[in-house]
Design a protein around this nucleic acid. Structure first.
Lengths: 233, 233
DNA sequence: CGGGCAGTTGACCCCGCTCAAGCGCGGTGG
DNA sequence: CCACCGCGCTTGAGCGGGGTCAACTGCCCG
């Protein structure tokens, strides 16, 4: 992790959600002086499950994964965050320690806002507060959906669904390949299955002309069929 | 569903969470006139997944289940609510429609607060607002844990865990039996498995003297062993 | 008395996990 | 420069957890 002397302005990250748009210009100015920004390398851990979180994080660039570790040490990836996303607030607001570990999977520039200042903003700006509430409620809805999926869909359906979800969240490059590069093991950690199962299913999908594979690059060839595959039960 | 002429005071429900304690006496007085209260019978549906929710609900007595329905019609129970618990706010705050259906499993008396008034309270009372945020964040943490469990634990471990969780949430009567009576199918719907599997495992647990069974009444005999069983991986 | 639902049990078998072996590739050190 | 090592990926074999299907029972209720 390296300190970034060049603190980005919040306006640079006005994408996806609109949390910080809810702040007044004055509040944004103050924030610019209070927050700091770090560069994290691939593989760096930002915080670990079970530890105290001392503030909230907002991603300027890069991708991180949020995961829980099972008793046998296997990672279950809960979700990802990318440019404009904030994380860490669940622990702050619930008063718990972190319920997930957060690790960088693509070099990231990440701003940090101390908990006290974050709480102050929430108390003083009800639009901001409503925004945070909305975020947390949307995450909760996503988590509930995920529970249903893991409980009732089989691995093939879940893998198809995850590929579509990655497509929606990260989009594709000029080559039509997903803008996120995961190891087979990480893919297994999202789907909730064994690495070997992911590998076998990916090559099946490839054989069926649903996707194209090139190392960790994945290109979706037939989104419609993948959708049918993922919803069919 | 029947209208209840005898509107309970919020103070009657100051248990579990302390959400409404955050309101001032004046706010509580106003609320008493704005809210209404209904009696729901066992089996009644309060709202269905995918429909608009028009306000939040607070339980005076009884138990309800929140569940999602899979493509094949199978219920996945996400959580329960009981006296003092509020629900429905996720949909209001996220702006979505309901992500779960809510059905009564034990006759319930439930207060209803229209969305507009709920939002007004949130905007005007930051302690109340923080309380709601905390609730939603705790639910999110629980949901994340559930994802890990369903993804990585086997059915036996999950069933043991669910029994312990029901024990913590609902406690036992004078006979030591859990204060919640679920069908085998509902138990399967929480654990995320087939009804037959729950039946087989319950009778195994009984044979191993971990529990005692009497129709839908379940008595935990060896909490320590159940804990070991549920955590072991 | 009969219908229907919850619960139970047995038989069967398939999905997906585990284990093991082999491959390709990039980094490192001799 | 090449040999080696280790990690990620792949494939095959084997098997067991647990899902499905079917049949039967007991019980409630009309």
């Amino acid at each position: 992790m390296n300190y970034n002397n060049n603190i980005p302005k919040c306006e640079d990250c006005f994408v996806n959600n609109d949390i910080f748009r809810k702040l007044t210009n004055d509040e944004l100015d103050v924030l610019l002086y209070i927050k700091n920004c770090n560069i994290y390398n691939k593989g760096d851990t930002i915080y670990n499950e079970g530890t105290r979180v001392t503030g909230i994080y907002c991603i300027k660039s890069g991708i991180v994964k949020h995961y829980k570790t099972g008793n046998d040490g296997k990672e279950q990836i809960i979700r990802f965050s990318k440019k404009g996303d904030i994380f860490g607030f669940r622990a702050i607001l619930s008063g718990d320690s972190a319920c997930t570990s957060t690790k960088v999977i693509e070099e990231s520039s990440v701003c940090f806002i101390p908990a006290a200042h974050f709480i102050k903003l929430i108390k003083e700006n009800s639009a901001f507060s409503m925004g945070i509430m909305k975020l947390s409620c949307i995450e909760l809805g996503d988590a509930n959906q995920y529970i249903l999926d893991i409980a009732q869909k089989n691995v093939r359906e879940r893998l198809a669904e995850i590929l579509l979800l990655l497509n929606d969240n990260f989009g594709t490059n000029d080559n039509g390949e997903l803008n996120i590069f995961l190891t087979r093991e990480e893919l297994a950690g999202i789907v909730g299955t064994a690495t070997e199962s992911v590998i076998r299913l990916l090559s099946e999908f490839k054989k069926d002309k649903l996707i194209e594979l090139n190392k960790r690059k994945i290109k979706l060839l037939d989104v419609q069929k993948l959708k049918r595959l993922s919803e069919l039960y």
